[in-house]
Design a protein around this nucleic acid. Structure first.
Lengths: 242, 242
DNA sequence: CGACAACTTGACGGGCGTCAACCGGAGTGG
DNA sequence: CCACTCCGGTTGACGCCCGTCAAGTTGTCG
């Protein structure tokens, strides 16, 4: 019960940041049929090739999208956190073209794609919000193409840290100079097109330079200006999603 | 005059492939205010940081999107051809987050973003078509992240060729085994995260293996099965846009 | 406290970048 | 009509960043 309300509240908060909603929009969102589910770490939420019937909202925890190359190599194409809607990329397609998997324990809320589509058809402001969210995702994908295509290992990882920190803070997670980095170094490697060994080398180097420090899964940013400089990070591509 | 009709026809054809339109949809599209422009090769159509007021349709010719890294490195994030709408990625944002540039001489048609937005609000089928188009672009971005992140040089280039051939054919350009490859090897390098020198080496190698042959700007595919195998190409991510 | 995943570190090798030279075709101007 | 220029393509030599392999350490959970 209460977790359903949490889910609705999370979605409303997210959409509210993307477009100006009125009360009737908010009550239409509240009327969505929602099923809440607990998911352990590593659970698949969407599988490539399967039909995406329900649309998934991440209420708590972290998840990531990934695709597999023919040789078995895995490429993570985005990370997701509390409040993110994970299936809008599939909203108008029958078949999923990538996988989504939890990275930690998570609570997810499912709602039928049909219901969301209908909401979008009836309510232009909600349609705009959903559409804008998918466009921000697309902008992030483009930045990732640049990241893996044209930056060296140290820069790539620094950039990934900047983006994750910015988004985490926008989602109300972590503090200005400290946030949780829930993924393993192998997952960082799969996101940046590197191996876990080399990710480790670069993280150690950034640590030795005093740019970041690590306490367990937490990252403490010692020098934001330098981290941004190393990363070549400009948050414009996040379009105020952060 | 006639080129305006060409532009409307091209857009209608494109949207028709993305959603089922009726006559009223078609006449609404035909009523869009359109300005047709000739653009020489290398012309910027959209600049990062500028406001995207008008939305651009590519009537003939080729174009590409790109972003610049801090060190001056350029990453091309997509190629575009006849019939593609180039600004839907900016439709709901004030500021462009990447550049779009022609790759050949081109004819482009401009229509106010506002007019398209309004059309989308009034006509759910057109909204679906436009939205679906942006989702396909996003799916292609994800595949490119995989391409530059997890495939070696030869595979990357082969994959890029497969995608371009598939999309060109869907756009009614080229034959089953021969198509124009309008970009320079440096542009191929910027799209695949390689240098033009290495692109050349790989193209020569694919030629020596009999997979492809080149006649000027044209590519002749000698062995489709092998090219697809080398590339690890599966067209599912194009979602029948090809 | 044992098992297992994740992290850490070192040695070595290769794929691709860098630099440099040369070639070939298309456009240009005398 | 030919010489000049320039851009793009082609090829070789060399070196480095990062992958690979392997061993050891730390941390966590049962």
């Amino acid at each position: 019960m209460t977790s359903q309300n949490d889910a609705i509240a999370a979605m409303t908060r997210k959409l509210e940041r993307l477009a100006r909603l009125d009360d009737s929009d908010r009550s239409a969102i509240a009327a969505l049929p929602v099923t809440v589910q607990f998911a352990p770490s590593g659970q698949y939420l969407v599988r490539e090739g399967n039909e995406a019937v329900n649309c998934c909202l991440l209420v708590t925890g972290y998840a990531f999208r990934h695709k597999l190359a023919q040789d078995g190599g895995r490429q993570i194409v985005s990370f997701h956190m509390r409040g993110d809607m994970l299936d809008l990329q599939h909203l108008l397609f029958p078949i999923a073209d990538h996988n989504i998997q939890t990275m930690t324990e998570a609570i997810v809320a499912w709602t039928p794609c049909r219901a969301l589509q209908q909401l979008a058809h009836e309510r232009p402001r909600i349609a705009d919000a959903l559409w804008r969210d998918t466009l921000i995702d697309a902008s992030i994908f483009r930045e990732w193409v640049l990241n893996v295509g044209r930056r060296d290992a140290r820069t790539r990882i620094a950039h990934m840290l900047c983006e994750f920190a910015a988004r985490a803070q926008a989602a109300g997670l972590g503090a200005a100079d400290r946030f949780e980095l829930p993924m393993t170094q192998e997952q960082i490697g799969d996101a940046t097109g590197l191996t876990s060994v080399h990710v480790n080398r670069m993280l150690m180097q950034l640590g030795a330079e005093g740019v970041i420090a690590r306490r367990g899964k937490d990252v403490i940013v010692g020098d934001w200006a330098k981290l941004r400089r190393v990363a070549g990070f400009d948050a414009a591509y996040l379009h105020d999603a952060a």
